[in-house]
Design a protein around this nucleic acid. Structure first.
Lengths: 178, 178
DNA sequence: TTGACATTACCGTCCAGACGGTACAGTAAG
DNA sequence: CTTACTGTACCGTCTGGACGGTAATGTCAA
């Protein structure tokens, strides 16, 4: 019964991400989100009874999307290892969505506990990777490196140029497949 | 002695970091910082004319400390490469200061531009590393991996156990020296 | 030495504005 | 009648920071 929902929910969620990016992570107010979404404040509160619920939904949606993308990638290239799929998908995500995940800082500012689902998600995925990857060193180095890349993109630090990023990802995939 | 030693400044700075950690990044209020530092609000505003200045000082102090630690480490072990020194120092920093840098999120919530000094610092250091490291692949992989480790510790994600972290750092140093 | 003034380093209060959230009446569609 | 809102009015709280003191510490002239 998950599939119902008005399109307002989706509009509000993307509006929240937009406001977080444009107004800054600390200025994510319900008023701003509502007006950005073209919805009244009452309407927002109807869909998300509190700011906390909105944040929660933001995190859950993000996690869902990633999971789904991972499964899709895995189905599309079953010959590749899970690690290789994960690395490529993450690199791609960092590449395209410039700082789309800036709302994460809003969530942290509101309450760091909102990240708990992300942590458990990461832990589960890491366990899966450990079970699937024969060489622990390989996993550690490549996983952490891609985590570093994610960190740079999250903080909007353009430290690497195009060539360097490409070289890095290629190298990581090489290591993962070696 | 031209340098007036008002120890209030230092007290306030550490108090700010403490409050950020304990009350959460989004609840860093001047009142809380002042009372935590054992200083009145007026006194706080005397030392830091605005919240923005306080944040700025926090960032600058952090950067100064790191730079100083790096130079010290370099002087102590001149035979090691700059990269090796950087990796070890960063790993150590992630290890001991659990989530001491939680105030960073406060700064971001206040205004993401507060991170600009950190970005330029990183860029300069990275340029230095590039000039000093013959193999670019080596630099990219190890630098990003340590950045990943820093990210995990910043977000307080205890993904790796003691052995894994040790294995990772050893491997990185091996790669850097290989 | 002393008295007068200046600066430093801080105290404590007050306030305007922003924000999350509530309440409630209305409405258009199915 | 229910669902999914709109719109307005409102409340309590929190927060940055402006402001007016004030005690201690210099500084300097007589």
């Amino acid at each position: 019964m998950k599939q119902k929902k008005s399109n307002s929910r989706e509009k509000i969620l993307t509006a929240a991400a937009d406001v977080a990016r444009e107004a800054g992570p600390g200025n994510l107010s319900l008023d701003a989100v509502a007006s950005r979404a073209g919805v009244s404040k009452g309407g927002l509160l109807y869909n998300f009874p509190s700011k906390a619920k909105l944040m929660q939904a933001l995190v859950e949606e993000y996690l869902n999307d990633f999971q789904q993308a991972l499964e899709t990638a895995r189905a599309a290239e079953p010959d590749k290892t899970l690690l290789a799929n994960y690395l490529r998908l993450s690199a791609q995500e960092c590449d395209e969505t410039k700082d789309a995940a800036s709302w994460i800082f809003s969530a942290i500012a509101e309450d760091p506990d909102f990240l708990t689902p992300m942590k458990t998600f990461k832990r589960q995925l890491f366990e899966r990777l450990k079970a699937d990857t024969p060489n622990l060193k390989t996993l550690l180095v490549t996983y952490l490196a891609i985590e570093g890349l994610r960190s740079l993109s999250l903080f909007d630090t353009d430290l690497l140029n195009e060539g360097e990023r490409e070289l890095l990802v290629d190298t990581l995939l090489e290591i993962a497949n070696g």
